[in-house]
Design a protein around this nucleic acid. Structure first.
Length: 901
RNA sequence: GGGCGAUUAGCUCAGUUGGCUAGAGCAUCUCGUUUACACCGAGAGGGUCAGGGGUUCGAGUCCCUUAUCGCCUACCA
């Protein structure tokens, strides 16, 4: 950026004007893309959690991507070749559903009526026109992704990777096809995985049904929440040690309605105390029953068609919907006096995450991934430290899932997605292949003609689990990016994604990057689990509840920097964040503050600028503080403690820089204005400008990861003498800690600040007008303090609004004066004719009481022998020291008070 | 049923390995337009740290327990 353009800086932070153009400038300058290979810098890689291509930005995204961007920018400035890979996933079910709905509403078309190819081309064109909105929104947020490497999970190279993964797992015996009980979504008519189910508490009933025992007058009563499934019962189970049923084990029941003979079996899984102690077993419709059925060799019957209507197993009720069948079954049992009783209960029902309709467990033929062997190295990864969770407690959640993992059903009865790369011959013998197989060609094992490709597609996660390396060129092991940027360093995501995505990516890293040494296989070294964004009342933000806050709207209202900064400071690591729209005012105010103090500083940097910084107390103090905040921010960001870094910057910017350094510096800048060009004051002001400019430049760098737009705009206006390198702030180097903190300047300036506060306090309590400039007096506790106060008397007078400052160490305390304590003694301001000292007296008496309470507390401790014995020497010593200080304060205060009256 | 998290000022939250008189922002009250900023400045008030026990010289912080709220998880028919 050139310095030539100097448009007027507005008096207010106006984000829309500031942000416009900055992002494009970064991109044009090539700052979003890491340098070509050849650089000897270390790399730092972040993979974006790919949002749904149909999605729009919500607050969770805004938070998550701000976190990633803060890290990316900090690492980039810290000398890493930083790559942040953006992209989207194809979100199989969600996207297909959106387009299907639209086609039906607009044209009355269904996908079946259109056919597979036509439908897919509709989705693709929809994606081209309406997809990727979210990527544009990320730009508005300021996300410094490398757009030249943008990926989509259905890109050709990603598809190649998916096929490679599928076939290679098949070859290793880790992918198999089988008829198993899966979660069936009757509305979308596809299998879904366990992780796509949500549970909802609902009021319902427990029906107790009586089944007659064959050739005896006895009955066995079983309870069920879903009576219609009794039609597919193939047994009843009781506990082997249950005396009530002992003589019935092995006997046969006559299943009502359909008159099927089913056995009574013994199974350890039955809890005697629950219900009647007898459980109807429906292996085709309940996961627990499926297992019981297997253990006892009970047949599996499928009661439901894929559309949720009853099969022939339903006997007289075949063809009914499950709801109608339920009613019919209950009526039948009532009519035949086999309905024992009904209880009202609340219970959990499984709902499809996608269609929000009840899930039916259903036996069907699907492809599965055998998870346990894949899980083992992923478990080991957290044990050997290859993978760390930020907020270590999430490690447990991750392990819980991996240690109890079930095989993963990866086929989906959809059209939008990676079609399963398996072809079948006329006997249905599968042939998985990395490349397309022609219909009519011969199956390599059976020699019979190939007749069809598997019609199903893969679960979306079966492509996104490859994201960390497929985006970099895998399966081409020679790919430059793959070798350079894998493994990555930082993955930030939401907690509900730990199972769905994080654990699977780690599994994939170990399963597919076997050519790497073991310690380089884990796809990322840190997994950061970000806060959940809740609304102002603590509820989850959701579309259906309509309580979401639109980040783009917030960006338009408050500015991207304000939104980013607010999110960072409001979100404590690992803690949920309650967010109401007005909370962004915090960031807005802060941005305005940065803007205005920069405006002040830049305005003064037009004068002469010395080589060296000023060496007055305030100059040395602000440099020490700047060094200290630099260390704090650098450490915090290194540990991914975003809140701490944001907080440290807030304190430094607002309190130290704005309220104290700038206010202090004004004095010398104004003296120079009055004194003329060649004066000593002018020379001094030139050094103030050096300090002011250096501090501002470094502050802008420190702030840049949080508020990139604003700081970049301000950087343009900074004279080149304050920029070690030309170019944009985004490409500038991160400040180095100089170890300048803890200097005597900090102690002296702190005393001065305290004295100023004391004077201001007295002013307020005595209601001395701001325009009045009284003579102030300091009674210092010792000569050293008096020296320091005298040496900086002009500054102190300026800040406290005094016409003159007198400093003494002993003698008469000023008569008819208001007073307060400060860390090094007392301050005094003279009464005027109309002074009412009562407020001041109340305040001092209150303070005296507090101090004497403090003294009593310490006396209590020091009188306690066990305290002296057990507490550390340093603790005892500091209590003694504190006792002395309080005593001085107390006697001073008492003396001051008596002088007052 | 199991697990995790929360409970600190009117509101939203900080508070490192136990150790000075428990902090901040917002809100409230008083004063103030001093040429960076009223999206500002100066000052003030406001808290038996959810309840109860315990460990300790000392507990917001560690342990036990109760309560309320939230999240995750589980095959109660």
């Amino acid at each position: 950026m050139s310095e030539t353009a100097q448009p007027e800086l507005t008096t207010r932070y106006t984000p829309s004007e500031i942000e416009a153009g900055v992002y494009d400038a970064w991109q044009t300058a090539g700052l979003l893309t890491p340098a070509e290979k050849g650089s000897d810098k270390p790399t730092f890689t972040i993979m974006i959690p790919p949002p749904n291509v149909t999605g729009v930005l919500h607050m969770g995204h805004a938070l998550n991507n701000t976190l990633q961007d803060v890290i990316a920018r900090h690492k980039r400035m810290s000398g890493f070749d930083t790559l942040w890979v953006p992209g989207t996933d194809h979100a199989g079910i969600a996207t297909q559903a959106v387009v299907e709905k639209r086609l039906f509403q607009e044209k009355g078309l269904t996908r079946e009526s259109m056919g597979r190819e036509a439908f897919l081309s509709e989705i693709w064109s929809w994606k081209e026109h309406h997809g990727n909105v979210i990527l544009g929104q990320l730009r508005r947020l300021g996300a410094s992704c490398d757009w030249t490497r943008t990926k989509f999970t259905l890109d050709d190279d990603m598809s190649t990777a998916v096929r490679e993964a599928f076939v290679s797992l098949y070859e290793r015996g880790l992918v198999y096809r089988g008829a198993r009980l899966v979660n069936w979504d009757c509305k979308l008519q596809t299998a879904i995985s366990d992780d796509e189910i949500e549970y909802k508490q609902q009021k319902g009933h427990m029906w107790y049904l009586r089944y007659p025992v064959k050739d005896s007058g006895q009955f066995v009563t079983v309870g069920t929440t879903r009576p219609e499934t009794m039609l597919a019962d193939t047994g009843v189970a009781v506990h082997p040690d249950d005396a009530r049923y002992a003589d019935l084990i092995g006997k046969t029941l006559l299943l009502p309605i359909v008159n099927r003979e089913i056995p009574i079996v013994a199974d350890e899984s039955v809890e005697r105390e629950l219900g009647t102690g007898a459980v109807k077993v429906t292996p085709g419709h309940d996961p627990a029953d499926y297992e019981r059925g297997r253990r006892n060799n009970l047949p599996i019957l499928n009661l439901l068609e894929k559309d949720g209507k009853l099969t022939d197993v339903g006997g007289p009720f075949a063809g009914l919907t499950k709801e109608a069948a339920r009613k019919a079954v209950i009526e039948w049992f009532e009519a035949n006096e086999l309905l024992d009783h009904i209880e009202d209960i609340t219970h959990n029902i499984s709902i499809s995450d996608r269609s929000k309709t009840p899930i039916e467990p259903l036996v069907s033929e699907q492809w599965f991934v055998k998870m346990q062997p894949l899980a083992e190295p992923a478990i080991e990864a957290v044990h050997d430290g290859s993978l760390e969770f930020k907020q270590a407690r999430w490690k447990k959640v991750y392990l819980d899932w991996l240690e109890n993992v079930h095989d993963w059903c990866i086929s989906r009865q959809l059209w939008w997605g990676h079609r399963i790369p398996v072809w079948y011959d006329e006997d249905d013998t599968p042939f998985p292949s990395r490349v397309d197989v022609e219909i009519g060609s011969l199956h390599p094992d059976t020699g019979k003609p190939i007749v069809r490709q598997d019609p199903d597609v893969l679960d979306t996660w079966a492509s996104s689990w490859l994201w960390p390396f497929a985006t970099l060129g895998w399966p081409n092991e020679e790919a430059t990016d793959l070798n350079r940027f894998y493994p990555t360093q930082f993955l930030s995501t939401a907690r509900d994604i730990i199972y769905l995505w994080v654990a699977r990516m780690v599994m994939a890293g170990y399963a597919f990057r076997k050519e790497l040494p073991i310690q380089e296989r884990c796809p990322f070294s840190t997994c950061y689990i970000h806060a959940t964004v809740l609304d102002g009342k603590g509820r989850r933000m959701s579309k259906s509840a309509g309580n979401g806050i639109d980040p783009v709207e917030m960006i338009e209202k408050y500015g991207a920097d304000a939104v980013r900064y607010s999110l960072m400071i409001l979100t404590r690591e690992g803690q949920d964040v309650k967010l109401a729209a007005n909370r962004f005012e915090l960031g807005q105010r802060f941005c305005n503050k940065i803007w205005n103090v920069s405006r002040f500083a830049l305005g003064h940097l037009e004068g002469d600028i010395a080589e060296d910084c000023g060496d007055a107390l305030e100059d040395r103090w602000i440099q020490a503080r700047l060094d200290s905040v630099t260390a704090e921010v650098t450490t915090a960001l290194g540990q991914y403690d975003f809140h701490d870094a944001a907080q440290a910057l807030y304190r430094f910017t607002w309190d130290d820089f704005c309220d104290w350094y700038v206010e202090s510096a004004k004095r010398r800048l104004r003296l120079a204005e009055d004194a003329g060009l060649d004066s000593a004051e002018a020379a001094d002001a030139a050094r103030v400008r050096r300090t002011l400019g250096n501090t501002l430049a470094q502050l802008l760098k420190l702030l840049h990861p949080f508020t990139p737009f604003l700081t970049e705009r301000l950087w343009e206006h900074l004279p080149s003498t304050f920029r070690s390198v030309e170019g944009m702030l985004m490409g500038a180097e991160w400040p180095v800690v100089q170890d300048k903190c803890e200097t005597p300047a900090e102690v002296d300036y702190a005393a001065l600040q305290d004295a100023v506060r004391g004077f201001r306090n007295v002013r307020a309590l005595l209601e001395i007008a701001a325009s009045d400039k009284p003579v102030g007096t300091i009674l210092a506790n010792d000569e050293a303090m008096a020296q320091s106060m005298r040496a900086n008397g002009d500054l102190l007078s300026y800040l406290a609004g005094l016409s003159e400052l007198q400093v003494q160490t002993g003698g008469q305390r000023p008569a008819d004066s208001g007073t307060d304590l400060f860390v090094g003694g007392s301050v005094f301001l003279p009464f005027t004719a109309e002074t009412d000292a009562s407020k001041l007296r109340d305040s001092l008496e209150k303070k005296a009481l507090k101090i004497s309470k403090g003294i009593q507390a310490i006396d209590g401790k020091l009188a306690n022998e066990r305290f002296i014995q057990n507490a550390g020497d340093d603790v005892v010593e500091s209590e003694r020291q504190r006792r002395v200080e309080l005593e001085i304060e107390h006697s001073t205060l008492k003396a001051n008070l008596s002088a007052l009256s």
